[in-house]
Design a protein around this nucleic acid. Sequence first.
DNA 1: TCCTGTTGTCATCCT
DNA 2: AAAGGATGACAACAG
Length: 529
Amino acid sequence: MRQQQEDKLGYSDESYNYNYLHSDNGKAKVDEEVAQDSEEVDHSNTGASDSNNIRAEIDQNTTEPTLFFEEFIQLLAQTENALEDTSDNSLQSAEPSTRPGNSVGELWQDFLSLPDLNITLEDIQSISNTNNAISTSVPFNESVNEAVGQDMSLQEAMFASSPAARSSEDHRQENLLQLNSSAISGDPLSATNLSNLFPNTDNNSRNSTNQDLLSGLDENVFDEINLMSLALEEGFDPLEVSQLFEEPDSDSGLSLNSSRSPTSASISDSSSITFGEEEGAAGYSSDSESTSYDGLEGAVGGSGSEINKFCQMDDANYYTEMSLHNVHHNHTYNQLPNHSEPSPEHHYSWSVKSSKVRSSCVNTMDKNLSRDERRAKSLRIPFSVDEIVSMPVEMFNSMLSKHYLTESQVSVIRDIRRRGKNKVAAQNCRKRKLDVILNLEDDVNQLKVQKEKLLKEQAHCSKSVNHMKQKLNDLYRDVFSRLRDEQGRPVNPSQYALHCNSDGSIMVVPRRLFKSEQKKDTQKEKKQK
DNA sequence: TCCTGTTGTCATCCT
DNA sequence: AAAGGATGACAACAG
């Protein structure tokens, strides 16, 4: 019956779960946007895909390895040149990269291990010897081997290897050189300032080798360089840009709120905590002063892929990674369905309108966040409310078990999920109830129409019955008016009646006999019953 | 200020 | 047994 009603109402699993579909679509859209961001905003931000792209490029160039090698080596030389100065001045605090497959060494191993590419270092050396430009700018035996040994960035190589992307590469190289030169000239964007970009000096001084430092550099330094170059392109004041990466009370220059304990965060401190987002765009932040809280904000609104990575880090790395990633990604997918989509230029708000957005967002964001979002934020839960609610239960449980969460965090996460599920259920329930009411109203209206129709039909029938009765009476009188008894007198209709036999013949019967026969018949019928 | 509709949440039952 | 869907009831809020 219920199923029938639901079918009648047009309910299906799809219509019931429209909220889930909505969020999925939203997330897919955001993923698409993030992917676009990676292409449009920061081409050097895709360390993992770099190796894939390089491999793809190698595959494409296996028929002409010389061409590829020339470009590859040239890029190594350029990158190494650019990195030498930077690493001398600022890499002591660079964070080691743990991302697999991102180093030149690993890429080189992959490259040499390609089955169709039987190339030795001697081959490469012979190629390099034929290339004056390379041999003059970089001593090949040393530089290539050093480069291979180092975890230097191949992001530059990726783009330079593509002629179409060379202009942007040149531009980025310019910015890099500007940074290097400014380090010498004492520019605000100096290498010492740049060194402040890399937190966790303790960790680095304790654990890092030069190679590790370079591997940390390959991602982080170019992220920051891209930020700076983007800011410069947008007409930012260099001092302001340099402040993007500085934390006033930080030893490393980018402490990313390391002084805040996870359990004692003062998120209401609007003077130092801001939201790099406008209404509904929780998770995206680019504000310079909001680095620490942005990490948190990004956590609350972060994507699943980032969650997995972040939650296995210690606090310092967590916030470092969060802040660096939030600069490049737009985490808008924990928006509630009624929140408006941010405009595309929103991704760049940090550089275009950061101060205005900052001041306005400080006052409005907390009010716009739901209770659960605020709770999640206060407990530094690194998942968005939307993710917590819409995630399948298997994934949800594995997420809880994989990540190191306190009991209170788990409790809050489960509460958020329960309330979120129930909220959706309540919405569906009310929608269903409303539809049931509407359908019942339709049924009532239809029944009213049917009743009126039946009443009209009944009136018509009774009218015709009365008409028939009238005709029968007239006929009766007419018959009796013509009947005569044996003496030729008229027959009294009150004493006689017409009786119709079973064979169709009609007899004139005295009423008393007719009545007695009728009584007998009724008695027989009663007995039979 | 009262009324009404909407929404979120809780408790409870059921699947 | 756990998870979650369904739903009545309540409270807060907005118009």
